[in-house]
C-alpha cells in the first residue's frame, strides 16, 4: 500500500515568508562569499537556487540550517528568520533547528547501518519515538513518503549502502523526513543519479511540497525549470534575480541571468 499525500490540485497553497533572509553577508576568513542577500522563501513551494560554481548558492543554502557553523572560519552577518524567528539567536538550539530544517546532499550518504536504522536514528536521538510499533510506524511512513517503501519493505534489515544510488538518495530523503522537518534543503540531490532515478526524485520533490518547504541547489537548469515554482539566480556572491520560475526561464529581467541560462555566460 502506498501512503497517499493529499490531492495535489487542492494542495496548491503557498505560505509566504516561511523563510526570510535580510542583508545576509557570509565571510570565509577575509573572503566575502555572500553580499547582502535578501530573499523571501515561500512555504509549500520549491525554490531553486541556480548560478555558476562558486556563486554562493550552496553557501546560502547552508546558512538556512546553520551548517556553516561547523566551519571555523565562516562568519554569517545579517538576519535569517524561520517563521519569524531569528535562527541565529543565542537561544536557538542548532540540533533542534536542523531537525526542523533537514538537508539532503549531492552524494547519497546513508549511515553504514540497516535501512531501518537509517530512518530510525533521527527520531530516536530526537526522542520522537523509541523501539517498537511506534518506531515501525515512523519508518514505514517515511519510506512511503519518499516513494521507497515498496522497494525495500522486505529487506529493512539489509544495509542502506547496498541500495542503488537513486534508492540511497530516496533513503536519505526518507531519513530527513523521519524527524518531521518543515523545510528540506537539497544540495544537488540528483547530480550523481541517472535520468530515471532523477525522475523519481523530481516526482518526489513535487509531492513533498504539499507538506514541506523545499529549497534546491542545482546546476541543471532544466531540473530547476521542471521542479521549482520560484528560481533565484546567484552570481559572484550576489542574488541577482528571484522570480517565478516561468519568468526566469522565458523572460529574465537581468542581462546576467539571461547570459547564464542561455549559455552565454563568461
Amino acid at each position: 500500500m502506498r501512503f497517499e499525500l493529499s490531492d495535489r490540485s487542492s494542495g496548491d497553497r503557498a505560505t509566504p515568508g516561511k523563510i526570510t533572509a535580510r542583508a545576509v553577508d557570509v565571510y570565509y576568513g577575509a573572503k566575502r562569499a555572500l553580499h547582502n542577500i535578501t530573499l523571501n522563501i515561500d512555504g509549500n513551494r520549491v525554490t531553486a537556487l541556480i548560478g555558476p560554481s562558486g556563486c554562493g548558492k550552496s553557501t546560502f543554502l547552508r546558512c538556512l540550517n546553520r551548517m556553516n557553523d561547523t566551519i571555523d572560519i565562516c562568519r554569517v552577518h545579517g538576519q535569517i528568520e524561520l517563521d519569524g524567528e531569528d535562527i541565529y539567536a543565542k537561544t536557538i538550539d542548532t540540533v533542534q533547528l536542523r531537525a526542523r530544517v533537514g538537508m539532503v546532499f549531492q552524494k547519497p550518504n546513508p549511515f553504514p547501518k540497516s535501512i531501518y536504522d537509517n530512518i530510525a536514528y533521527g527520531p530516536r536521538i530526537h526522542g520522537l519515538a523509541q523501539r517498537g510499533p511506534e518506531m515501525d510506524e515512523i519508518v514505514q511512513s517515511s519510506l512511503e513518503r519518499a516513494g521507497l517503501w515498496n522497494e525495500v519493505k522486505d529487506r529493512l534489515k539489509e544495509p542502506g549502502t547496498g541500495l542503488s544510488g537513486g534508492q540511497q538518495q530516496r533513503l536519505c530523503i526518507a531519513r530527513a523526513i523521519a524527524v518531521s522537518p518543515e523545510v528540506i534543503l537539497m544540495d544537488e540531490p540528483c547530480s550523481a543519479l541517472d535520468p530515471i532515478a532523477t525522475a523519481h526524485i523530481e516526482e518526489l520533490i513535487d509531492e513533498l511540497r504539499e507538506n514541506y518547504t523545499i529549497i534546491i541547489v542545482t546546476h541543471n537548469m532544466q531540473q530547476a525549470a521542471r521542479v521549482s515554482q520560484k528560481t533565484a539566480f546567484f552570481h559572484l556572491g550576489e542574488m541577482v534575480e528571484c522570480n517565478d520560475t516561468e519568468e526566469i526561464f522565458t523572460n529574465p529581467r537581468d542581462e546576467r541571468t539571461h547570459g547564464y541560462i542561455t549559455g552565454r555566460y563568461g
Binding site: 537548469m221 532544466q222 525549470a225 526566469i248 526561464f249 522565458t250 523572460n251 529574465p252 541571468t257 539571461h258 541560462i261 542561455t262
Partner: peptide, 9 residues
C-alpha cells in the same frame, strides 16, 4: 539545445 529565455522565444 533545450533553449531558454531569449533563445526559446
Amino acid at each position: 539545445r533545450q533553449p531558454m529565455a531569449g533563445d526559446l522565444r
